[in-house]
Design a protein around this nucleic acid. Structure first.
Lengths: 367, 367
DNA sequence: TCTTCATGTTGCAACGTTGCATGCAACGTT
DNA sequence: AACGTTGCATGCAACGTTGCAACATGAAGA
């Protein structure tokens, strides 16, 4: 255990309180005293004890992040942005992964909630918004993802229906008509797959392309292996499509690989479009057309939303500005309704759906 | 703020201490009392306050993890394994990223160290072992990576020199003689690139292949873009190699992409080998031969090492078994010297260096 | 000289938890 | 009847920090 305020006080010959005043940069300290205390602080390598601070102040500066998988590129990139953005709020991120397991999601939610962390950002796969609402009580919660939390919980996501419509319309615009959709996930609660399927169907209907149930392929996970399996199934089953919209880039990369294995040329024989804009897709051969959610905006909005809740929720212990405290208290009476924040997205067209030569500069972000 | 022991005690009509006894499953509580308390606990949805517990007990159950980038596949996979393995130790991981910036590494090290976290796992890029030793004091520290911490700090890594030798020997075994190395990083302190370069050179020497400085290409980062740039430089500069050993899979995937853009056939014209065994490499076209560090073992060993230090370092507050406390105290006298733990690795040969047909089942982990 | 004031400095209490020591019944033993 | 023993329950203190109120000190004003 390191040095405490008491140790420093003893060494500098002042009271504990004065040391605290120096540490916290309070004005009412004589220059000479401040100097002496600062020297003692350095000599003893004093570091404030976060646990004690939190116990007093009721906040820790820690934000929990629960995602299904840290090692999936999409969540990795998102987590990275969240960690970076959190630094701007002077927050540290406590990352845990649920593997999409509802039980584990609940345990993390209840275990972290109300404890140690000031707020929680979660991308649920297994729990429904109602479950989430019931389990989360103590701290503000912001969801990432498409689930319909209808006024129950704040959440941030892109408009997946619209994005899927645009992606599918893009494929239709290439003259494709047998467009498969890979990534249907009936068992998941988060609504992502549903919304993308809805968008896909809407685009087909709008273009008067007859839907074919055989072209809607379910998967059990969003990994490459599943994408490859789905594509093989399509090709083996005699349902060969001329384009495929995958609900994630990983699925698309797996599908791409399988198609190439079957001797297909992409995009000539098969156009491939993904979703997420992960880095791998930019350097795949051919590079992958995809829907790019504005991940930086998602991170920014999620944290901003949490910041708002924190400001409103707690009576601002020791608020410096009385006017501000007033406003916070006023907002605190009627907890503001849950927000639904929609982040931007754009369709990034690359080689896997373009007519361009394969011998191009390659990526839209080449160095 | 949630309910405290005091609230529960008031409701159950017992003392605070008794509630604590129930919460902690102490035996000396009458069944009837226990029942009453438990009911009160549930009614008030009591959750123990971690800050207060830590303040008392001196430990938090939190382990810090500082890695350069969460979104790089290698560190993502490693972080994922660490989080999972940490669960077995009943630890939660606090993840932060340094971007390899020495200043930021130092800040994280000092800021986290001694505070809130019980231990720290770090993969330094910018700080030298000496710097690290100076900054880290309060909590046990385990390094991940190749740097030579010579007895200063515990660390876990694969034998990069040996692995690089094997990889290069594999390329030589294919009959290749103009073997490039992509990934030299003169400015980094972590020793990874140096060791892999050493291994590469050793293999060349052992096979009596004349080294060519023009084939050793530096990079400024381990990303795909840099790999592509390096490969273009090799091909444009008239130093066309017939094989390339990249110090990371990401570099290899970038190099692969650039080679394909130049119309080369891989592996016919150019054999490509990477390092890390990230998932992308398994599904690339062609799939990527690589050195696979045993990441699960790295995670396991790092946490086990930390667990040892924790057991030895602190006098086991309230040790249940006196014999055990004795042993811990005995070990505590002379802090055991820093350990160097070497994790296993293996060379995974895939399409990018094999003579196999391109139309294969693809990956060595196909589903 | 006595109040008023500004400027520094300090003691006390409390945040929620748990180790330790003690309290207090009811019981069986001498 | 006095005693130790056992089974439960409780009070006190402390972990390190900070809000609050109070305290000194000296200078300015009445």
């Amino acid at each position: 255990m390191g040095a405490s305020l008491k140790d420093v006080a003893a060494r500098a010959g002042v009271s504990v309180r004065t040391v605290s005043n120096v540490v916290n940069d309070f004005p009412m300290v004589a220059p000479e005293t401040r100097r002496r205390v600062q020297q003692a602080l350095e000599e003893l390598r004093y570091r404030p004890n976060a646990a004690a601070r939190q116990l007093r102040a009721g906040r820790s500066g820690l934000i929990g992040l629960v995602i299904p998988e840290i090692d999936s590129p999409y969540f990795g990139e998102l987590a990275s942005l969240l960690v970076q953005t959190a630094q701007e709020h002077a927050w540290t991120l406590l990352v845990d992964q649920s593997n999409g397991d509802p039980e584990r999601e609940r345990r993390l939610l209840e275990g972290m909630s109300g404890q140690i962390i000031d707020g929680l950002i979660m991308s649920p796969w297994g729990l429904s918004p109602t479950d989430l609402r019931r389990s989360a009580d103590a701290v503000p919660l912001v969801l990432l993802g498409e689930q319909d939390a209808a006024g129950l919980i704040d959440h941030v996501s892109v408009d997946s229906v619209l994005a899927a419509t645009e992606a599918t319309a893009h494929l239709i615009g290439l003259g494709r008509r047998r467009i498969a959709a890979i990534g249907v996930q009936p068992h998941l609660s988060n609504g992502t797959a549903e919304q993308r399927l809805t968008g896909y169907r809407q685009a087909l209907r709008a273009a008067r392309v007859a839907p074919d149930p055989a072209l809607e392929v379910p998967v059990t996970a969003l990994h490459r292996a599943e994408g490859a399996r789905a594509m093989r199934r399509l090709l083996d089953g005699g349902h060969a499509p001329d384009a495929v919209f995958c609900f994630s880039d990983q699925l698309a990369l797996g599908a791409l690989r399988a198609a190439l294995d079957y001797g297909l040329s992409v995009p000539r024989d098969l156009a491939v479009c993904g979703f997420d804009d992960i880095e791998d897709g930019r350097y795949a051969t051919p590079s992958l057309t995809t829907v790019a959610p504005d991940k930086a905006e998602i991170a920014r909005q999620a944290l901003a939303c949490l910041a708002d809740r924190l400001k409103a929720g707690r009576p601002a212990l020791g608020a410096a500005d009385p006017g501000d405290a007033e406003a916070a208290a006023g907002a605190g009476d009627a907890p503001p309704p849950a927000r639904r924040i929609v982040a931007a997205h754009r369709l990034v067209v690359r080689e896997s759906t373009a007519g361009r030569s394969r011998r191009s500069t390659g990526t839209d972000r080449a160095v």
